[in-house]
Amino acid sequence: MASVRYSEEHEWVRLDGDVATIGITDYAQQQLGDVVFVEVPQVGRKVEKGESVAVVESVKAASDIFAPVSGEVVEANAALADSPGDINAEPMGKGWFFKLRIADQAQLDGLMDEAAYDAFVKSLG
């Protein structure tokens, strides 16, 4: 069963075997507002935890998406180019950004589970 973990950058990571699907949370999409452009990483790119790997632009501003764990990009959500609104409509479904084959599963331990993330969001007011 896939488990979902969350980062303080408001990204979610769903692990399935050694492949992690990554997107932004509902809280993040609400804060961004209407998303109008997304830049996703190239397949094959090796990324380090904390590295800027994608860009999401709302009407108001551009924001970086950081790799919550290290790994190699195995797939990117090409459909977002034509329907960036998927990120607002289904941030944890159709609005996923990219998939990483992760190098070190232990890095997931540094991320929050759902209860911890909910508490983190509440603490932001």
Binding site: G33, D34, V36, V59, K60
Partner: peptide, 9 residues
């Protein structure tokens, strides 16, 4: 800056 419907709407 915006209302619940959002800037595009």
């Amino acid at each position: 800056v915006q209302y619940p419907t959002g800037i595009l709407a």
